[in-house]
Amino acid sequence: MKFGFSANAFREYDWKETIEIVADAGYDGIELLFDRPHLYPHDVDDGTVADVRDALDEHGLAISNCNAFMLTAIEGFHHPSYIEPDPEYRQERIDYTKAALRTAAALDHDYISIEPGGPTPEEKSREWALETFAESLEEVLPVAEDVDVDLHVEPEPDLLIETSTEFREFADRIDHPRIRCNFDAGHLFCVGEDPVEAFDALEPFVDHVHLEDIPEDRSHEHTQLGDGAMPIDKFLGALDDRDYEGFVTVELYPYEETAAETARDAMTYLEDGGWV
């Protein structure tokens, strides 16, 4: 089991500074942010790719994940989504995802994480949203196949796909080997699931894990490790028992004002627990 930290907490830093800070905090890897002010795919050229790879090599960091979920370069975390009623606006998310796949491939990484459809529009049915999400991904999947990069759909509270069951149902619906799961333990805890049971249900689809603590009321608020009610040690113990060898990336994006300190404190929690 390897540990990374997500660059999405470092929006007040550039990507070079972020790599240095995450490495100095003792992590094995970093989740790159495919959004401004970091590595928005439409802004990335061959020179940028070479610079990123050099910086990672210099600091001994691997890429734990390429985060293609957030899209503040256009509007926000969730919009434009794959299920926008306006097809032209929806196409912006589709085109962004295609570019993100190509950027991940240029960086020699095997997957990107994406939002699970998006917020279901009030005027649309769930069935319409599921079908539209599937159609959006069907447009993206030829690029995924061409560049040999997987799409990790990340269940999230209040979006189209929230639970492990909903992910399995959607994966069966689209039935494509490039569709995988970005397993966010805190998200599944928020919607009432036991993270260990959820991992066991989704393990065949999982190559990457997100970790954060969650408040006792299970509200969707990414909280510093040890400050909430998530059974973190039980969950990490279960991953260890199952010989999970992928990355566990700590994702604490609300902590922008204290990102460097937050990354160090999360590593201290992991060290004190004997996980690193």
Rank of each mutant, 00 (worst) to 15 (best):
F189S: 03
N182R: 10
P195W: 12
H152D: 08
V140S: 07
R242S: 11
F199L: 09
F199H: 08
D241F: 06
D148I: 14
G237D: 14
E212P: 03
H210R: 01
L141N: 02
V191D: 03
G226V: 00
D243L: 06
D146C: 09
S219L: 00
E145K: 13
L202E: 03
T163Y: 05
D240V: 08
H220C: 02
V206F: 01
E212G: 00
G186W: 02
V209Q: 06
H210I: 00
D200E: 15
T165H: 14
A229M: 04
C190Q: 09
P195E: 12
V206Q: 01
P231L: 11
D213G: 00
P215Q: 00
R178L: 14
C181K: 13
E197W: 10
A229K: 01
M230Y: 02
R180D: 09
E221W: 07
P204K: 07
L236F: 13
E154G: 06
D158R: 02
A171K: 08
D148A: 12
L151Q: 03
P155F: 01
G226R: 04
F199M: 05
L151G: 11
R168T: 14
F205N: 13
F183S: 02
L239M: 12
D194Q: 10
L236E: 11
A238E: 10
D227M: 09
F183L: 01
Q224F: 08
L151H: 00
F167I: 06
L160K: 02
R173A: 15
D241W: 07
H220G: 04
P204Y: 00
V196T: 13
F199S: 05
A185M: 11
D172K: 15
M230T: 05
A185H: 12
H187F: 03
E154A: 08
D158K: 05
G186D: 08
S164R: 14
E145C: 01
F189V: 05
F199D: 05
I214S: 04
E156Q: 12
G226P: 02
H220P: 00
G237P: 00
I179D: 03
A171E: 14
P195F: 07
A144L: 07
D217L: 01
A229Q: 03
H208N: 10
P155Y: 04
S164D: 15
D148S: 12
P177T: 13
F167P: 01
H208T: 12
H210A: 01
P142G: 09
E216V: 04
C181N: 15
R168K: 15
G228T: 02
R242D: 13
V153R: 05
C181V: 14
D175P: 06
L236Q: 05
D207P: 04
A144W: 07
